[in-house]
Write a protein that binds this DNA or RNA. Structure first.
Lengths: 334, 334
DNA sequence: TTGCACAATGGCAACGTTAACATTTGGGCG
DNA sequence: CGCCCAAATGTTAACGTTGCCATTGTGCAA
């Protein structure tokens, strides 16, 4: 039984149902101009033969793929999972699929992502930028291929979307200042990180906006170890009552570093982070941090492409603010 | 300038280069039977017109999409990022693309994943199973669609691949026994988790194989909080010198729980976990754990589909063992 | 009875690519 | 000089689908 057929096409179904190919097509699309009984006959034939529409034929005919490509230079990045959840959710909503591609970052250019995508069955593409591509200023998207960049930087020809990496710092700093802290120390990150630099600017400018000269920052490397060292270094600074770390791992490391020097959090020093990435890993603390909605970032990007669906919509830039999550690592001095 | 053309096809390129469509096609595929100077002329025409091959036409002609579909019930799962890295790497190697789909798990069946995929341009599919699908026993893959399941269970019709969730427990338990511990206490996980149950079996059976009756286990819920509680509960048990937690978050929670009761790790009690998921988050500890190679799991799955490439290869089952990573949370009693 | 509108269905062509086969050209060799 | 081979290029058809237009059938008003 069931010899492995090549593949079942409308023609086969049409023959079996005793109708024309066109009627089969109409049945597939549930056109109202097919008699219900005919439809049922066709459906029966489809079931019997195990017919499923061929994507290639359809796309060829329609000139659309109903697919959005996602290009990543680095798949294993913080937040990518949530972003993908967003891509998938939005794609689903529009009846689109997601095609994932890893682009090797040598060179790290938008052009390389774009040309990689150009050979794939996609109607538009999303590029997740972690660093600054060499050709950011000069890049032009492929004609007819709507391109969305996930970055805080604005681009003249591509829509962009990202978490608001400046505003998260503003939120944290103001939260600490409101609670009576005279200044906020900062644990930064490697200088090549775009988002990290923006967080740093947010910290600095918010302090200045409140008439406070930012203290010297400590440069970390995203790891808890570097936060630990920073915590130990700051433990002896009597002016330091509040520390803001540019990610949660460093914040947690900092807490442990302070504790190793006999300081208590939050009694002696308050600590806050960004990213809400500790999840269920740390048992005895609820870190005060900022939660980003990466899923929403992902959805926005795909919505932009799948939602337009032909009606070419203009270039937009979207920054999605995070939400400050109150934990138990900040003391109210008022 | 540059009016938005419909799209550039071989025909346009052929006309401009003054050759036949076939010669263009041959040039695209770098066939040796085209004179170099002709090739150059064609390439110039392609550049001038901005030609890029149409995926739909190509797939239609070839009957292949060069794409592997990945179906996930739950995108935000531990290890998914590394697995995707593996999917992407293997796909790249074979010149394939990856199409990602979220399947809503109501009902949680392989059939729903399969029918979702059937409408997409894919040659084969990978399903990431977290739980037991209702139709696991009865499921048959779509004809012509090679299907690989990411699970430890074996399936008669689909190849399967996963981390070896039994062996990781064996490794940890034997590591602890070798170091002089008389028994190993266990912090388990919710009973619905397939992999968690297998880890539990590994713990139990390895102890029995060494003639040790397993002590009563403590059921956790994957979170550090539950590990914390377990640690506190075990702190007063004098027979407890070694604890194995079925993930790292619980292991770390357990350490903190023990410490909260005045016990030191590893001086008083040794603790080990599985997953190597703490990464850079915990500053002052290097947990003894088992590192899985999820990237390799992902690569194996896609290799299986893209590697066969027509020559239908048989059903295989692959378990990839993890590697025990020595940290500083286990004491050698010898 | 004829004419007409409308519902249901069929025929044909085209989307872009490429495998298979056909044709042309040039060169070497008897 | 004619023959044959190989290299280079061209022609045709087909992959599966669906938009457009044509055809058939049915009921109803004139």
């Amino acid at each position: 039984m069931a010899a492995v057929k090549k593949s079942v096409s409308v023609k086969d179904v049409a023959r079996l149902a005793g109708v024309s190919e066109q009627t089969v097509s109409r049945t597939v699309h549930d056109s109202p101009s097919v008699r219900p009984e005919t439809k049922e006959r066709v459906r029966a034939a489809m079931r019997e033969l195990g017919y499923r529409p061929n994507f290639a034929g359809r796309s060829l005919r329609r000139g659309k793929f109903k697919t959005v490509g996602v290009a990543m230079f680095n798949i294993t990045g913080t937040g990518n999972l949530d972003r993908m959840e967003g891509f998938a959710a939005a794609a689903d909503k529009h009846g689109y699929a997601i095609t994932l591609t890893k682009v090797d970052g040598h060179p790290y250019t938008l052009e390389s992502a774009s040309s990689r995508m150009s050979a794939l069955p996609v109607d538009g593409m999303v590029v997740i930028m972690n660093r600054m591509p060499a050709d950011f200023g000069t890049f032009e998207p492929l004609p007819g291929m709507q391109t969305v960049l996930v970055t805080m930087l604005e681009h003249p020809l591509c829509s962009t979307v990202d978490n608001d990496q400046f505003d998260c710092s503003r939120q944290v700093v103001e939260y600490l200042l409101e609670r009576g802290h005279k200044t906020v120390h900062f644990i930064s990150c490697p200088e090549r990180s775009l988002s990290g630099m923006r967080r740093e600017e947010g910290w600095r400018e918010t302090l200045r906006a409140h008439g406070i000269e930012p203290p010297r920052l400590i440069r970390g490397d995203w790891t808890a170890q570097s936060g630990y060292a920073a915590g130990q270094a700051l433990a002896d600074d009597p002016t330091c009552t509040a520390i803001y770390a540019s990610n949660d791992a460093m914040a947690y490391g900092c807490i442990r570093g302070l504790e190793s020097r006999g300081k208590c959090v939050p009694q002696d020093v308050s600590v806050a982070g960004v990213d809400d990435s500790l999840g269920d890993i740390v048992p005895d603390r609820r870190l005060t941090t900022v939660r980003f909605d990466n899923k929403r970032v992902g959805m926005w990007a795909v919505d932009k492409i799948a939602g337009a669906d032909g009606g070419a919509s203009g270039v937009e830039h979207m920054l999605i603010p995070g939400v400050l999550v109150e934990g138990d690592t900040v003391r109210d001095l008022r």
